[in-house]
Design a protein around this nucleic acid. Sequence first.
DNA 1: TCGACGATGACCT
DNA 2: GGTCATCGTCGAA
Length: 197
Amino acid sequence: MTRRLKREYYLGDNVVSIARSLLGKILITNINGVITGGKIVETEAYSGLVDKASHAWPNKKTARTKVMFEPGGIAYVYLCYGIHKLFNIVTNKKGKPDAVLVRAIEPTLGIEHIIRRRMAKKLSKQLSSGPGKVSACLGIEIDHNQESLTGGKIWIEDSKESDHTIVETTRIGVDYAAEDALLPWRFYIKDNSYVSR
DNA sequence: TCGACGATGACCT
DNA sequence: GGTCATCGTCGAA
């Protein structure tokens, strides 16, 4: 069985280890009563204090990034390229702007709704293999920004699964971050076909 | 105000 | 491999 992660989980001060430990857990949404979810198979860590790739670097608080300065356990959702909604998990204590980007899931719950949202005919590996696709599958919108992850709309459940091998590598699409683009802060489950790229 | 530019994805060749 | 849709954000003016 599975159980919902508690607030304390998200308050941890090591966003990199949280990003790694989120692999295999189940991300679930309840959007107007429609429940969908999937196993997290790919994540990336972003740390506002030390990481040029983070929107909140260097400890930069703006209208957009202020949600990352809140205590962990809430969502940071923003619009990328004017089209895609990217879902992040805010971590760490108040004033420490860390977040984990969920890049891919393996659908496990409400698969018929996921297929409908993606306007597909059937389940395929390409439905949820990318951060914009994850939000599209789960019905995550911009106005879920700052939504609590311990409430009734978006949450994460633990899983007993632990037999996967984790691959760590560099993050995607952050070349602008110069040397920080080389940090091994992207994690995915080895051989899982829902991983992006 | 204004303009450059994305933590992407779909579609094309 | 390449192109481009599309718009909020942020720093410059």
